[in-house]
């Protein structure tokens, strides 16, 4: 029992393996190099955000604005370069600064008012969603920005965010490398640094953490800034992959990130979870998303599948907490 308790990602690992086997056997395209590259790419975009969101959830908070923020950052770069002729690198920095500002605003509001982050970031989510559409339309007259490929310096930045390289016959997109690196980094930070220890403590029992000298407010700021930074990265990865950006990009994905984190073993109440688990959650989602296409099912089944996975994960989590909370 305690062995399982310490491994939040065990359930997600079993589920990921099962789904992998299922689609590998039932469809012919799933295990081809092109197929693998497709679902890995899909998983990577969700995975980067899910890892950041998982850290935040372990620290006891939510960020519903994360999805819309991937759109906001992409739009800022798109408008700044195509409309104002700003240098691509400068536009990248501008978008990052904007994302961090929103993250800091979320953190400031949550830590200084004590309001639930669910409500605070729900508000910023809607504000961003509105701004994304309204401002884009105001400045460009449309709700999509195109023609980024013609911007000078685009190809240089593309190396970092939109390139790909061949490996085992696959065309591996660079976002997969980002995803793996960030998952490893997040795991190391969580389990092997003081900050990571504080994240668990702040989410598990903030009052106790404060009593022993953990800077609770600073930890929460760090976590909100991390999700904002991740949203910027995912925004860039999407932007430079297709060189267009829609004003509706990212809307509705905030819950997918949370679901990935929960499927990966994060408790909704904080204090427990893992980065690897969140990555596995994203892998499950990515495989199901593409697997359903390969199997030529109606893609509407995906949402039902997602709901089922979430329910199952929450029940497993409940059991975990009962085991640990039994005597406390």
């Amino acid at each position: 029992m305690t062995g399982l308790l310490r491994r939040p990602e065990v359930g997600a690992f079993v589920a990921a393996f099962g789904i992998f086997l299922y689609f590998s056997i039932s469809t012919s395209a799933f295990l081809t190099p092109a197929g693998v590259a497709t679902w890995l790419y899909s998983s990577s975009l969700f995975g980067i955000m899910a890892v950041a969101v998982a850290l935040l959830m372990i620290g006891g908070e939510f960020d519903l604005s994360a999805g819309a923020m991937t759109g906001t950052t992409g739009l800022i770069v798109g408008i700044a370069t195509t409309q104002w002729g700003l240098n691509v690198w400068l536009a990248l920095v501008l978008a990052l600064a904007a994302a961090l500002l929103v993250g800091a605003f979320n953190a400031w509001l949550v830590t200084s008012t004590g309001l639930p982050s669910f409500i605070v970031t729900l508000a910023t989510f809607f504000i961003l969603q509105g701004l994304n559409l309204a401002v884009t339309k105001l400045l460009t007259g449309t709700v999509a920005i195109q023609g980024l490929g013609a911007v000078t310096g685009f190809d240089q930045a593309r190396v970092l965010f939109g390139s790909s390289f061949p490996l085992f016959g696959m065309d591996v997109k660079i976002s997969i490398v980002w995803w793996i690196l960030l998952t490893a980094l997040a795991t190391w930070v969580l389990l092997r640094t003081r900050f990571g220890n504080w994240v668990f403590a702040v989410g598990g029992q903030a009052a106790s953490a404060r009593q022993v000298g953990v800077p609770v407010r600073r930890v929460k700021f760090g976590l909100f800034l991390t999700t904002a930074g991740a949203a910027w990265l995912v925004g860039m990865l999407q932007l430079f992959d297709v060189s267009t950006v829609q004003a509706t990009t990212g809307i509705g994905q905030e819950f997918v990130y949370i679901i990935c984190a929960v499927v990966g073993g994060c408790l909704l109440t904080g204090g427990f979870g893992s980065a690897i688990g969140a990555s596995l959650g994203a892998l499950i989602y990515g495989m199901a998303l593409q697997g359903i296409v390969f199997a030529q099912w109606d893609s509407n089944w995906l949402k039902a599948f997602l709901g089922g996975m979430l329910l199952l994960a929450v029940l497993v989590n409940l059991w975990v907490r009962r085991q640990a909370g039994e005597r406390s």
Binding site: G204, Q205, A207, V212, F272
Partner: peptide
């Protein structure tokens, strides 16, 4: 040592022991 003990239930024993004063 107060009644609430300033412990985090889900955190391993050793992490609780050193919480806020971790050795690096």
């Amino acid at each position: 040592v107060y009644q609430d003990l300033a412990l985090v239930p889900l955190l391993p024993v050793w992490r609780n022991f050193f919480l806020g004063a971790e050795e690096t």
